[in-house]
Nucleic acid binder design. Structure first.
Lengths: 303, 303
DNA sequence: CGGCATTGTGAGACAAACTCATAATTCTCA
DNA sequence: TGAGAATTATGAGTTTGTCTCACAATGCCG
């Protein structure tokens, strides 16, 4: 009663139709004519339907057989398409590259990088996945994402942190702001300021982790703003000051009604890393993405 | 290297995704958890691609696995649709009913029959196949068609002739034609006439096979015309006379500028048969088509 | 860190599909 | 029409692969 159809049957049906006869089909499929005869008989028994007209030789598809042929011609190409994608996967031509960014401002340089990347690797499924700022590394391990941009490397089995580039965290204020007079900014300078930051926990903001927490300084106020463009707009109109990575404030697209100053005499320099699973590290498209990221960063930093 | 994909794999992938985990999927598929584990391992080895993320429990599909899931969700419904059609075939709800008509004029009553038939049997694939007037019976045996309308029954193994209805071959001429005066027409009457017939060999035309050949009479001229409406038009305008089945000349849609007369004092009566393969004879839709044909014929013959 | 839930592994049983050899058809052409 | 060629069917035996069973290994949760 229950039809036990297999791909082999579809291929057989198709070959018999295509090459006109069992014997020729058998050659094509590298199988004996006997095997095909048995195969079809079995299928007909299970289906309870005659698939071929046997009065004529070579045998031809019956009405029901033609229906099965239609199925074969729908289904087999779909399978082949998938196999082609798998082979692309194995040769490294294709793959998935979903990126989680811990650092809010990384959109700024990542977007143009991905634009360039897509042109060279059209078969790679690239995407930026927001909403993972917190659990990005566990998600990396569970293969929910394939690359995490982070500035805090950790020791994790199966995960590697690859340095992308260094950047400076720089102070930003309106041109008319009193602190714009200083050559460099010190922690104490923030005590009577409104600080504008991205809406994430303090430990993940350079200004707090590198300066204010060690110096035990609390700003007069902290305002959280999502969009980089918005932060710069507020700063330029003297609603507060901020600290941003250098690549952001060098972006030409933003207004220039603000000045930048180093943090401390020496400046605060940090590194950005790409965290990837060890398995993926040597895939060609992964290497290229990392190379592109470095190039783009240098371009933005005016080097 | 070569991926040996089977439907079983697609069903497994789908079930694991759907029921979240190998163990639950195994229950659903009435199979051991162990079997699924072996199955997937085999598939991954052959594909050379990891299909599942095993770091997490229950295991989840990887990027490649998701691609395979997409295939499963495309392909499995197509297979199910075909199986449904096969089951319809077996219960006799569905089937193919391609009809070859040897007699040219049979369009006239067959068309309305098929219109009615389609309403009751929407799953049956009905069609009239022209161009087989000659080899209709061999085509029936080879299952190229499923029913042949014929007026010449033969003894053939595996083929049965089912009587549909009787009809009279009647003489047709313009109302103003001299022969319209006669009560009935005899073979000799054709000797000085232009006879209009369908363009088929003489042995398959009632007027020749039943009258003129036995009486060894040759008409003054024979003109072959394809369309019934055209024949009646020519007859009405006195370009010749014709012999047609009674059901044709009773069709209201044709002009009535002609008269009909019986052939010979007794009339020439013939029978029309449906030739079908013995296998098909008792299928419900076949019986109904034959019943409908009889009904329609009686309607046309004014009974 | 221990117990629970889940997945992986190896050996053996079993069924399904294949090959080989040969029989039974149908087709072709003189 | 009938002999030979071409094609398909059948049966026995072998091989391949997939399943079950029992148990080991692994990740998950409190």
């Amino acid at each position: 009663m229950g039809l036990h159809l297999e791909f082999r049957h579809l291929r057989t049906i198709k070959a018999i139709h295509e090459y006109g006869g069992l014997a020729r089909a058998a050659d094509q499929l590298n199988i004996t004519q006997s095997a095909l005869s048995h195969q079809i008989k079995g299928l007909e028994d299970q289906a309870g339907v005659e698939l071929f007209v046997r009065r004529s030789r070579p045998m031809r598809l019956s009405a029901a057989g033609l229906r099965l042929l239609r199925l074969a011609e729908q289904v087999l190409p779909q399978v082949e398409a998938m196999e082609a994608e798998f082979s692309a996967l194995k040769t490294g031509r294709a793959g998935r590259l979903h990126i989680a960014i811990e650092c809010h401002a990384c959109f700024e340089w990542l977007f143009p990088v991905l634009e360039a990347f897509r042109k060279s690797w059209p078969e790679v499924d690239v995407d930026i996945r927001p909403g993972l700022a917190f659990d990005a590394l566990p998600a990396l391990i569970k293969e929910e994402v394939d690359l995490v941009v982070s500035s805090d490397p950790e020791e994790l089995p199966g995960v590697e942190f690859i340095e992308l580039f260094d950047y400076a965290a720089v102070f930003v204020a309106a041109s008319s702001h009193p602190l714009a007079e200083k050559a460099f900014i010190e922690p104490e300078d923030f005590r009577d300021q409104t600080l504008i930051t991205y809406p994430v926990e303090r430990s993940r903001l350079d200004i707090f982790s590198q300066l204010l927490i060690p110096a035990k300084v609390e700003p007069a106020a902290v305002r959280q703003v999502e969009l980089t463009a918005m932060i710069l707009l507020l700063v330029a109109s003297n609603r507060g000051v901020s600290v941003l990575p250098d690549w952001v404030v060098r972006e030409v697209k933003y207004s220039s009604d603000y000045v930048t100053r180093p943090l401390t005499r020496e400046g605060v320099t940090r590194s950005l890393y790409a965290a990837v699973r060890s398995d993926d590290r040597d895939k060609p498209f992964m290497r290229e993405l990392i190379a592109l990221a470095r190039t783009e960063a240098h371009r933005l930093q005016g080097l």
